[in-house]
Design a protein around this nucleic acid. Structure first.
Length: 446
RNA sequence: GUGGCCUUGGUGAAACGGUUAUCACGCGAGUUUGUGGCACUCGCAUUACGGGUUCGAUUCCCGUAGGCCACCCCA
């Protein structure tokens, strides 16, 4: 059957063609103006912390060669196996968007000869990290971490200090309902022995384990310890504990860390089942969890530990180090669920309205002048009608509106309108700043 | 990577397979032109995208993309 081609099946809109709406990449988020106060609050707090504790800020790049993370985090880990944004840089080599920062810090320590600085070197960072995971609560593909790293000393007091900084940070921002879980996973050597012991125990109970744990048995035995399955947890009760397999040095080290924490009056929970997912950890490990039990899953707000072998592994001199990383998005969502009041920027004090071309020109420079005088002022010079400008002023909840029109320009005056009472006053244009300041000072003094 | 639920304007919602796709908030322009908070008028959606079934799809089916959630794992 042939149809006349003159009748289109679907009528194409005669109007302008509509482009497909641009969309965010999966797992990526805009941090919108309405939530910036949380970010500012955290940045400010964290800034006072790193300065107060004598850390220097460092901003490593977001892109690093992939070998850095494969070597440091470990080839067998999920992060490296399936969660890295990896791509080939024009045939020059494989690069990745950093999934964490500690490896970069260690790399920087080596690259810039920081061994030659007084030890330990204390570094702070804050920035975006990337992991190609399935998005979920508390989990995005781009998220932010900040962290404190102390490189170049193996004294247990430093471990305690890192934990103390972490604890104090959470206290400072008002999240006191947290639990800091602490454990020691010893040196690489002692851990190897322990893992053998652990796997042989679990192998004997193999048929009681869940499917995931059967896989863990070969792939990631330490993870057997924190399986959520009740049957597996039952098996865990009689499992060998890592503390019993620590070498003397690690054991002493851990005892001292705990002593220091007690001395500092930091509350913590000893968790013999705590292991961490990254290969580079040695001795002390810890995680920060929300305290109250919610339905559904929860995620750690932060975590860290000692990584005495990392710098050597990356080609530096043997250098002990400790650090912590805290997840900003997770902290913010915890602030929200705990309904913690976070300072939000108040609205401006004054709105500058103008009517007419001449007034608009004058308003332009008046605004500049007032801004320099530190008057908290806003405007919408693009609008023409006074009505819509006052509407805006009302919505912005300013205390005063300045009104500058043709008449005022001629007289060298300006109107000050009290937005609450509606009372208006004519003042000398040249005294605008000082008059406003006087009024605002009075208002605040009440 | 595996699994579940989901997707209607900027936001929150409504619409037995048949409405010019409804409502509220919001945004913009006005209500005779220099005065906000009230009211009114008007405007603001190819129902995520692409296919299929049907005379007819916002509604049913499939695919893609995104969202939320859980597992794995992690901040």
């Amino acid at each position: 059957m042939s149809k006349t081609p003159s009748v289109p099946k679907k009528k194409v809109s005669a109007k302008k063609p509509v482009a497909k709406a641009a969309q965010l990449l999966r797992g990526f988020k805009d941090i919108l103006p309405g939530e910036q106060h949380y970010w500012e609050f955290i940045s400010k707090t964290v800034e006072s912390f790193y300065k107060g504790y004598g850390f220097a800020k460092i901003d490593p790049p977001i892109l690093e060669e992939s070998a850095l993370f494969v070597r440091s985090i470990g080839k067998q880990t999920d992060i490296v196996e399936k969660e890295m944004f990896t791509f080939v840089d024009q045939g020059q080599g494989t690069v990745v968007m950093r999934p964490e920062a500690t490896a970069s810090i260690a790399r920087a320590y080596i690259n810039h000869g920081m061994v030659n600085q007084p030890q330990p070197v204390k570094l702070f960072y804050f920035g975006p990290m990337f992991r190609r995971e399935r998005p979920q609560s508390g989990r995005q593909r781009q998220f932010h971490q900040f962290g404190f790293e102390i490189l170049g000393d193996q004294n247990p007091v430093i471990d305690a200090q890192i934990i103390a900084i972490t604890s104090n940070f959470f206290k400072e921002i008002g999240l006191d309902q947290i639990s800091i879980q602490v454990n020691s996973i010893g040196t690489v050597e002692s851990r190897k022995i322990y893992i053998q012991e652990l796997t042989s125990y679990y192998r004997s109970k193999r048929k009681m384990l869940c499917e995931d744990c059967k896989k863990r048995l070969t792939k990631n035995p330490l993870r057997l310890l924190d399986c959520k399955n009740p049957a597996c947890q039952f098996v865990r009760n009689d499992a060998p504990q890592i503390v019993d397999w620590l070498d003397d040095d690690s054991k002493n080290h851990f005892m001292k860390v705990v002593d220091y924490l007690d001395e500092l009056d930091i509350s913590y929970v000893l968790n013999p089942f705590l292991v961490r997912g990254l290969d580079y950890y040695t001795k002390t490990v810890f995680e920060v969890w929300p305290k109250e039990i919610k339905e559904g899953s929860q995620s750690a707000l932060g975590g860290g530990g000692r990584y005495d072998g990392l710098i050597e592994l990356l080609g530096g001199r043997p250098t002990p180090a400790v650090g912590v990383a805290i997840g900003v998005e997770r902290v913010i969502s915890q602030l929200r669920t705990n309904e913690i009041n976070v300072p939000k920027k108040e609205t401006a004090d004054v709105f500058l309205a103008q009517i007419g071309d001449q007034a608009k020109v004058k308003a332009l420079s008046l605004f500049e002048q007032l801004r320099k005088e530190k008057v908290d002022i806003v405007e919408n010079l693009a609008k023409d009608s006074l009505k819509s400008q006052l509407e805006l002023a009302n919505k912005l909840k300013v205390k005063y509106a300045l009104i500058l029109g043709q008449k005022e320009v001629m007289d060298g005056t300006i109107l000050v309108r009290d937005m609450e009472s509606g009372v208006q006053e004519v003042i000398d244009f040249n005294k605008t700043a000082q008059e406003l300041k006087k009024k605002l000072a009075n208002g605040n003094g009440r």
